[in-house]
Amino acid sequence: MTRTPKIICTYLALIAVSAWALLPLAWAVTSSLKPLEDVYRFPPTFTVDSPQWQNYSDAMTKLPVARFLANSLLISFVGVIGAVFTSSMAGFALARLSFRGRRLCFALVIASMLVPSQVLVVPRFLLFDLLGWIDTYKPLIVPAWLGGGAFNIFLFRQFFKTIPQQLDDAARLDGASPWRIYSQVIMPIARPATITVLLLSFVFHWQEFLDPLLYLSDLEAFPISLGLRMYQSMAGTWANLLMATSIVALLPVAIIFVVCERQVMRGLGVVGKPW
């Protein structure tokens, strides 16, 4: 029976931590329902007196938000497929195939994380201009198809390492090629890793801001991350509409997360294993 106070304490601590985690979200929700003047009221209120639901319809009509969301979905969808596909392939090679220079390749994966992305802005712009890719989605999508990010490769490698080697060996005895082992033996088991990478790279594409800014100049093609910026103008920020749109923009991420939460927990869990 001495356990009861302990459990209560644990719950209290957990509630405190979750409240802390949800604080910005709570602020966003309340602000999105306030008139603009009330967002800046002092002393601040934690509640909304009369929710301004029309903020949401205003936010959706003041800018072509639906269009931005559709664009974002398209970019993220194509990018995510590439990221999952190519990073799992690289991860597979690093975890499952033995070849000379494997350690070097792995070291390169880790080392490429060290490069500050701001250094790459100018050279990449030169490259994409040379390719004539300015004002297309290619600078946003194609990099995802070329390795899909060092962290994702690492995550796949770690996950593949947890799968028993015997499976490969058995398949190999049956005459299966590495490609078949990858596509028919390993990948079907690696769902948690796949879904984790899917979620992480979706979020990455969804929030990417600087690249779309540099590479897109047709408003009809803007993703939502650029659209959010349009509530800030020289004259003032529509904080309430910005928050309403932000919440609408967060929904897809939240939905995906809720659906595959269990897999993500398993997928992320493996990255801390000894390498």
Partner: peptide
């Protein structure tokens, strides 16, 4: 607790 990791962005 994990949610903030997904929400961390410009907004």
């Amino acid at each position: 607790v994990y949610l903030p990791h997904l929400l961390g962005g410009v907004a």
